[in-house]
Every structure is written in C-alpha cells, then in structure tokens.
C-alpha cells in the first residue's frame, strides 16, 4: 500500500520516523528545527520527548499530527504516512496543547465537547456518555454546564484533555499538557492519561514535557532532543544509569556574582546547572568522584559566596538530561553564564 509503513500490522510501530527533518527558511534566515530524526514508538507506549525550549519538540509533534510538512525524511503514525495519508490519519489521532487558552468562550463546556465529538463522527448519545464520564473523572462534572469563558486556565486545560481523549484516538499527542497547572490539576491529568491508556493496551501517547519528574513518573521511554536532533533515547531508568557512577551534589548559595562557568571549568565536574528559587541559587553538579568536591568548595569560597546547603543525592532523569545536553531545561541555549 502506497505510503504505508513497511512494518507488518501486528508489529507495526505506533510512530516511526526516518531521517525526519524540517528547515524553516525566510528571506533573512535558515533555521534547522529538526534533522535526521529516527524514532520508533511501540503501540501501547507512553513515549516522552524532552528538550529545552527551541529544541524541536513541538515541530516534531506538528509534523506527526499533520499540521506541518517535513522538508526531508518520512514519518508514519499508526502505519499511515503523515504526508500522503494525512486525511485518513486524522481519524486516528488527536492532539492537546498545554499553556493556551483554547475554547469557544460563549459555549458551555459540554456543548463544545459534544460539538467536537460530532466533527469526529461520534454518535451523539455515545459522545454524551463519554463526555460525562471523562468530565467526572477529571473533576469537571460540576462545571460542565458553565460557559468556557468562566473557567480557570487549569479547568480549560483539563477540558482540552477531555476533548483529546473522548474520541479514543489510536495515538494522542500531548504537548506540554501540564504546563502552568497547579500540583493537584497536574496530578489529575497524569492519572487520567495513565488510566486512559490502561483501557486499551494498544493506545499510545506521545508526550512532550518540561517537567523531568513527570517524564520519569509517566513515560515508558523518552527521547532527549537538543538543537533539532535526538541525542539519546531509552527508558528513564536506562538514561539515569548514564549518571549512576557520578557523584551528584546539590549546592545552595546565597546570591552573588555568576559562578556557573567557573564551576563547569573545574576538572572532574561533568556537568553543572543552576536555577534560582526563593532568592537562593541552587546548583546541581555531576562530579567524577568525591575528590572533586573540595575543589568545588574552594572555587565557591574564592568567589566570595556563602554556602547555605549541600546535599549528596541519587541521580534523577534531570541529571542525565544535564549531562547529555550540557544544561538544564530551564537554561537558555547560550554560552552566557548563569547563576
């Protein structure tokens, strides 16, 4: 069949890409958003795509959901070519993007969801049942008859998730679905995604997220994307093993002059990242062994900054990410110094 993934149906990947690339050209600029992406996601997997801002995650999702054409390579979702078979593919997928205020504000929650169910060809009665069920599960049953304009952003986000799940797609693409949600709402979303997958073992989720803990908790496998390329993929456990032999230290310092580049320059410091929280600079350091720590402390002392906390801890997915990418998810992609 033209445009169909070569894999047999039974072992067919939910998502497969071969040398997938995307270049944005303008009169002034050429931006390589994706290059040489080779991925294979199995049916029933919850697959995470991690990367800093501008890494190419959303571009990848946009190609896979047929919103954007690739400039090179090929991709298949549920065995269908995203370029040639895009019409048939749209029956089998859905997409939910986080961090946007999407919704026809004049409509009521149930009305909008029902409307979408009709655009997907669901029977009206089945759609109403499914909508009620999902609203109940996500704690939105009480606001089902409220207009969308009156919902909080968290409620809107959950409503978007209901829209994505209610049509029972073969593959759902969740682009930062918990961004800007409070802890409870984010937990509800994660629980529902897992429960939805549990209803049918062939359902597949492709998730992009900024939250490493979320990826670690939810994903069966993850791919780390940086500057348009997949630089590592595997289970969260396998990726964490890459930093298993490192000594991981969290340092808390009072604010002061920039120190990150100086710490990275110390022999034996594999990677370092920094973030500021509540007026305190927090550094995570991957050290080759315990002998590196005194050199780190000497450097800090030399900078005139005071240590307010020091903890040695177990490796996380974020540590693996920092080691692979060279910076944390929260840092901008530049050579400038951080905290």
């Amino acid at each position: 069949m033209a445009g169909t993934s070569p894999s047999s149906t039974s072992s067919r990947p939910a998502v497969e890409t071969r040398q997938l690339g995307r270049v944005y050209k303008s009169r002034k600029d050429v931006v390589v958003a994706l290059q040489g992406i080779d991925l294979s996601v199995k049916q029933g997997e919850l697959f995470g795509v991690l990367g800093p801002n501008g890494a190419g995650k959303t571009t990848l999702i946009k190609i896979l959901v047929t919103l954007l054409l690739p400039t090179s390579g090929q991709a298949w979702v549920d065995g269908l070519d995203v370029v040639k078979d895009y019409r048939a593919l749209r029956h089998r997928i859905s997409m939910v993007s986080g961090g946007e205020n999407a919704g026809y504000g004049l409509l009521r929650v149930r009305e909008q969801l029902w409307l979408f169910s009709q655009l997907y060809g669901m029977s009206s009665a089945a759609a109403r049942r499914r909508i009620d069920e999902l609203l109940e599960r996500l704690g939105l049953a009480e606001v089902g008859n409220r207009t969308i304009a009156g919902l909080s952003s968290g409620m809107r986000q959950k409503m978007s998730l209901v829209r994505g799940l209610m049509t029972d797609p073969r593959v759902i693409f969740l682009d930062e679905p918990t961004v800007a949600l409070d802890v409870g709402a984010a937990r509800d979303v994660r629980n529902e995604v897992r429960r939805w997958m549990g209803e049918d073992p062939t359902r597949t989720v492709i998730l992009t997220t900024h939250y490493m803990q979320e990826a670690d908790e939810l994903c069966d496998r993850v791919a780390i994307v940086n500057r348009g390329e997949v630089i590592a993929h595997g289970t969260p456990q396998a990726l964490k093993q890459q930093v298993d032999e490192d000594v991981i230290v969290d340092l808390q310092l009072e604010p002061g002059r920039p120190l990150l580049d100086a710490l990275r320059a110390i022999e034996g410091v594999g990677a370092a990242s920094a973030r500021e929280e509540d007026g305190i600079d927090r550094f995570s350091l991957l050290l080759a062994d315990d002998a590196v720590l005194p050199r780190v402390l000497t450097t800090v002392e030399g900078s005139g900054r005071r240590v307010t906390g020091l903890v040695r801890r177990q490796p996380t997915l974020e540590d693996a990410f920092v080691k692979l990418v060279g910076r944390s998810l929260h840092e901008e992609d530049s050579s400038g110094d951080g905290a």
Binding site: T66, L67, I93, E100, A102, G103, Y104, F116, L119, Y120
Partner: peptide, 14 residues
C-alpha cells in the same frame, strides 16, 4: 480569539 483553528482543522470532518 479562540485558539481553536488547529483543532477544527485537524478534525476528520474536513
């Protein structure tokens, strides 16, 4: 205004 274009565009209805 509604940020719904991509969702209605992707719906199988056409």
């Amino acid at each position: 205004r509604y940020h719904m274009l991509k969702y209605t565009y992707l719906a199988p209805l056409g």
